[in-house]
């Protein structure tokens, strides 16, 4: 694919690259929780400042991280419209059939659009500074307590690990299949919805066939080597979090707490 996919990892030496993946993932969830709380202008100022600071600290190419936002402009218009037109509360400025435009609805629409944009930037920074395998490792570590509830956490982590390893291969395969069908005369660029829908089977059916073929090969190989389950596997001992990781976590907690305070104290 000549266009860079969203969520691409960029190797680098920034402060954020050096942090432990578990700390980054936890911090990311804390900041997300903060963003979900945001509902006032000061809160959004804090959130955008935090996202901007992270982007600067990561030393990632800003254009690459922000590109998905640009590509999804239609999506933003849609979520704004959906909220603006279907919001139940507030005085209606205009209404027709099931649509109902209101000031409160528009505010809600802007809210959602801003949250989504912030979350995309945050996750762009996370995936840009953390290699996919590190993310799985971190998820794996964070999932561990689930085993106490009777959930087969290690099996799930193994399935997730295999899933992540399959992603690049399947992406490449998808690209090849798409090109092969185009070379045979398939057209994916049509404007009409119906034509576009009809162009999907030649793409999707072979993708599933080859994905399942790979799954079959891998499962056969695992069974041949006597694989029974993930529970008895040994894991690399995780190293403890360092001071910088704790500091980053504390900062994220602070931002999150600030958001909660702003949510309670400041009206829109």
């Amino acid at each position: 694919m000549s266009a860079l996919p969203a969520g691409q990892f960029f190797p680098g030496q920034s402060v954020l690259h050096a942090l432990d993946a578990r700390a980054k993932l936890l911090g990311f969830f804390l900041l997300l929780a903060g963003v979900v709380c945001a509902a006032s202008l000061p809160a959004y100022a804090v959130a955008f400042a935090a996202a901007g600071a992270l982007l600067a600290l990561s030393r990632l190419p800003a254009r690459a991280v922000l590109a998905p936002l640009k590509r999804l402009w239609l999506f933003f218009v849609l979520i704004f419209a959906m909220n603006a037109l279907f919001y139940e509360r507030g005085d209606a400025l205009w209404s027709w059939w099931i649509f109902r435009l209101s000031k409160a609805g528009m505010a809600q629409g802007a809210n959602v659009a801003a949250r989504v944009a912030l979350m995309m930037v945050l996750s762009g920074v996370l995936t840009g500074t953390t290699a996919p395998m590190e993310i799985t490792g971190a998820l794996n570590a964070l999932f561990k307590p689930l085993a106490l509830l009777g959930i087969p956490a290690q099996e799930i982590a193994m399935i997730l690990g295999i899933a992540i390893q399959f992603i690049p291969t399947l992406l490449e395969e998808t690209d090849t299949i798409r090109k092969a069908q185009i070379a045979r005369g398939a057209r994916f660029e049509s404007r009409s919805l119906w034509r576009r829908a009809a162009s999907l089977p030649p793409l999707v059916v072979p993708i599933f066939l080859s994905a399942f073929r790979r799954a079959d090969d891998l499962a056969t190989a695992m069974e041949a080597r006597g694989y029974r389950g993930a529970a008895n596997r040994t894991h690399r001992r995780a190293r403890p979090l360092r001071r910088a990781d704790w500091f980053a976590l504390a900062l994220c907690t602070g931002v999150c707490a600030l958001h909660v305070v702003l949510r309670v104290c400041v009206a829109f």
């Binding site: 969203a6 969520g7 979900v36 998905p68 979350m119 762009g124 993310i135």
Partner: peptide
């Protein structure tokens, strides 16, 4: 997590 689709919200 990997592609920011769907958005977190």
């Amino acid at each position: 997590l990997l592609t920011s689709m769907p958005p977190m919200a």
